[in-house]
Simulated assay, not measured.
Amino acid sequence: MLERMAITVVPYSPEWPQQFSRIAADLGRSLAGVPVVAIEHVGSTSVPGLAAKPVIDIDVIVRREHVDAAIAALVEAGYTHRGDLGVTDRESMAEPDEPRRNVYVCVEGTLHVRNHLAVRDILRRRPDLRDRYGAVKSALAQNPGLDIGAYLAGKSPVLQEVLAESDLTAAEKDAILRLNTGT
Rank of each mutant, 00 (worst) to 15 (best):
G149Y: 05
Y151P: 04
K173F: 02
R178F: 03
R101W: 00
Q18D: 08
T110D: 11
D84G: 03
A32Y: 00
D167P: 01
A139I: 00
P127E: 05
R120A: 07
P157F: 13
P14K: 08
E172R: 10
I56F: 04
Y12S: 10
T88K: 14
R125H: 08
L163H: 10
A170S: 11
P35K: 06
L123Y: 05
E76L: 03
A25F: 04
G43Y: 03
L2S: 09
D57Q: 11
I176K: 02
P144M: 07
S44I: 08
D68W: 07
R90M: 07
Q142R: 15
L31E: 01
E98Y: 05
S13K: 07
V119Q: 05
A135H: 07
A24S: 11
A170D: 14
Y151Q: 10
V10R: 14
P48S: 07
A139K: 15
I148Y: 14
A171M: 06
G154I: 12
V119C: 01
I61W: 03
K53H: 04
H112E: 14
E91V: 08
L168N: 09
R29C: 03
I7M: 12
L140R: 11
P14C: 03
A170E: 15
Y12M: 06
L179S: 11
G145N: 15
L31K: 01
L123P: 04
D131W: 05
R22Y: 00
T88S: 11
Y79M: 05
I148E: 12
P96H: 08
E3S: 10
H81E: 14
A6C: 00
V10S: 12
T80V: 15
A24D: 08
V37I: 13
E76S: 09
L140P: 04
R120D: 03
D167Q: 13
L123F: 07
V9P: 06
S21R: 15
V47N: 00
V67Y: 05
E40K: 08
Q160W: 06
I23Q: 03
Q160G: 07
I122A: 02
D147N: 15
R4F: 00
H81P: 04
D147F: 09
R63F: 02
E172P: 12
A94K: 13
V42T: 11
E108R: 10
A94P: 00
E3F: 10
L31M: 03
R120I: 06
V75P: 00
V75C: 01
H41C: 10
G28R: 10
V75M: 01
G83D: 04
R130T: 08
R90G: 02
H81I: 00
G78N: 09
Q18I: 12
G109K: 12
R29Y: 03
G49R: 10
F20K: 02
R120V: 07
D174R: 13
S92D: 03
S21N: 14
L177A: 12
A51E: 12
R64C: 01
V162C: 06
